[in-house]
């Protein structure tokens, strides 16, 4: 939402800022709730936030292209949960796939905290990096499992008579 609005006046500095934010939002959206909740337990005592958009569930249309190149078509609808929270004067947003209201809420709060200088670095270390590693390990495991079942097809080189 915010990234698209100042796309014309973007400098490389804001660009990397936006990429960083996209990264942590992506990590928070894909991770399971428990580890996020665990880190929140450390902060809940002193971080006060105001929900300016309480978590709400809606639908989003997923569009796709056949073979990645064909013309796009509507693949189907997925449920999306969104929330927005203010931590002092910083607004954070949470958009996740599925219907987990709690996760959307916490994501919005952490997005706000990650934008604030006082808490950003610590949270990157405590929350985002471990979650990112866990996501990567899971992805690697999945692809290793898939790779183990890979079937190699050998084709005899056909000797063309010359």
């Amino acid at each position: 939402m915010m990234a698209s609005q100042n796309s014309e006046t973007e400098t490389p500095v804001t660009n990397s800022k936006i990429q960083k934010r996209q990264h942590w939002l992506s990590v928070l959206a894909k991770s399971p709730l428990e580890p996020i909740e665990k880190v929140w337990a450390e902060y809940s005592g002193f971080v006060h936030y105001e929900l300016i958009r309480p978590p709400e569930i809606g639908l989003a249309m997923v569009r796709a292209r056949t073979g990645g190149t064909g013309s796009s078509f509507n693949l189907g609808e997925i449920t999306v949960t969104r929330a927005a929270a203010n931590v002092q004067d910083t607004t954070g947003f949470g958009f996740i796939r599925g219907r987990n209201k709690r996760q959307a809420e916490l994501m919005a709060v952490f997005d706000a905290l990650l934008q604030r200088e006082g808490t950003a670095e610590e949270l990157m270390r405590k929350l985002i990096h471990p979650l990112d590693r866990a996501l990567k390990t899971a992805a690697d495991e999945r692809s290793a499992k898939a790779a183990a079942t890979k079937v190699e097809f050998f084709t005899m080189v056909r000797g063309e008579a010359d």
């Binding site: 915010m2 400098t11 500095v13 800022k17 309480p54 203010n86």
Partner: peptide
């Protein structure tokens, strides 16, 4: 010029 993210305020407390 880097535009800091804007702050928003609350609408209805129970929107629906």
């Amino acid at each position: 010029m880097s535009q800091e993210s804007r702050t928003f305020t609350q609408g209805f407390s129970l929107p629906a």
